[in-house]
Structures are given as structure tokens and as C-alpha cells.
């Protein structure tokens, strides 16, 4: 597989380490919403189709990416910096 790194261009997926569903970005707050942690940590949509997922460029520039990939065909529809996605979802400090 080749991952279209937003900064570095296409890179072999072997340079990356996979984490999983990009929903892991949406971590609840431990003090105010502890009841949400089970679903956050354990439940997944696991779609057969388009999936947004986290890849870490471990053998590269150490960027975490959100890659949009089809889990049936493996086609990759895009990749962005996870930091940007996180900010877009309202995460900050």
C-alpha cells in the first residue's frame, strides 16, 4: 500500500504504524464524562467501506495521519495530518 502523506507525497505503508479508527481522536474528558470511556475505548463502527483511520509515520516524519481508506477495496481517498483533524473536531489543549 502507498499512503499519500500530505507533506511528503506517496510513501510505502510499511513506513507507518497503524492504530485504528480515527474516532480515537474524540477522547472524552476523564473528570466530566467518565461514563463515555467504555464506548470510546472499546466500541468501533468497523465499517465495510470507507474508514477514517490513524496511521503514524514512525519510520518517517513522526506525523500522525488520518487516512480515509476503503476497507473492502483498500482504495485510499485521502490523508491529512491528524493534528488538523483534531483541531477541526474542536480539540485544542
Amino acid at each position: 500500500m502507498l499512503i499519500p502523506h500530505p507533506l511528503l507525497g506517496p510513501r510505502d505503508a510499511q513506513e507507518f504504524t497503524y492504530l485504528g479508527d480515527a474516532a480515537l481522536i474524540d477522547r472524552p474528558d476523564g473528570l466530566t464524562e467518565p461514563e463515555k470511556f467504555h464506548d470510546y475505548a472499546y466500541l468501533r463502527d468497523n465499517p465495510a467501506g470507507v474508514h477514517k483511520e490513524l496511521w503514524f509515520h514512525e519510520q518517517g516524519d513522526r506525523s500522525w495521519l488520518v487516512v480515509t481508506r476503503n476497507t473492502v477495496t483498500h482504495e485510499i481517498l485521502g490523508a491529512v495530518l491528524a493534528r488538523d483533524t483534531a483541531r477541526g473536531r474542536g480539540r485544542s489543549k
Partner: peptide, 18 residues
């Protein structure tokens, strides 16, 4: 292998990835 997509039809999310 397909548990998530079959059980989704019953409205369930599972602690599973394929």
C-alpha cells in the same frame, strides 16, 4: 469476520475490528 456489519443491522456496535 463480518460480525460488525451483521450486528449493525440489529443496531449494535461491537468491540471488534475486522
Amino acid at each position: 469476520g463480518n460480525s460488525s456489519r451483521v450486528m449493525a443491522a440489529a443496531g449494535m456496535r461491537l468491540p471488534i475490528e475486522s
